[in-house]
Amino acid sequence: MVTQAQIIEWLQVYANVIDHHKEELTELDAAIGDADHGINMERGFKKIKTLIGTLKGQDISGILKTVSMTLISSIGGASGPLYGTWFLRASAIAADKEELTAEDLLYLLQAGLNGVLERGKAQLGDKTMVDVLSPSVAAYEQALSEGLDVVPALRIAVAAAEHGLQETIPMLAKKGRASYLGERSIGHQDPGGTSAYLMLRSLLEAVESYKD
């Protein structure tokens, strides 16, 4: 089970992680993009931080919707609509739910991924956040089918995300700004993939450590 308090904790953890990794994300984007991914994400999650107080009074779906709207209206760039859509679809899945079961979480992760795919039209292997989100959803699903519960399944999902992230390094980018680099995009880790991995890792951390 994932509780409302754990969702709040997740957002808090992720916001701090983004803050700490701001420079790193921007440097990754400088190499194959326009050097703003960390700045963009930080702009969005700084806003989320200021909202945590008001979020506490909402249910999970409401929280995720507010996060979506906040990210959409404050990040901009490519990552704004992508993360915004991810949270919007997640919010729909959580509608009327007090807590999320392991299965709810699978549907949520799937819905988020599908939102990103529809919005961005990227395919697996295009060197985007899809290359992190997609294998992690698959791994989580597989873990559930093998009877694992939320935390161990999420651990496996995060490991798959990390693996997916590593795999973006040798990829040639075909979507987003990095695609203009052609061959020169090879050898660099995708910034949006990195922030997506951090998002999942933060979720695991929150669910693992925070009991109320």
């Binding site: 326009d34 703003d36 700045i39 963009n40 702009r43 959409i72 209206s73 404050s74 990040i75 901009g76 760039g77 490519a78 704004g80 609509p81």
Partner: peptide, 12 residues
């Protein structure tokens, strides 16, 4: 106008 070199947002 968005931030420098960053697309503006749909609410704008």
């Amino acid at each position: 106008p968005g931030e420098v070199f960053t697309s503006p947002t749909p609410d704008q």
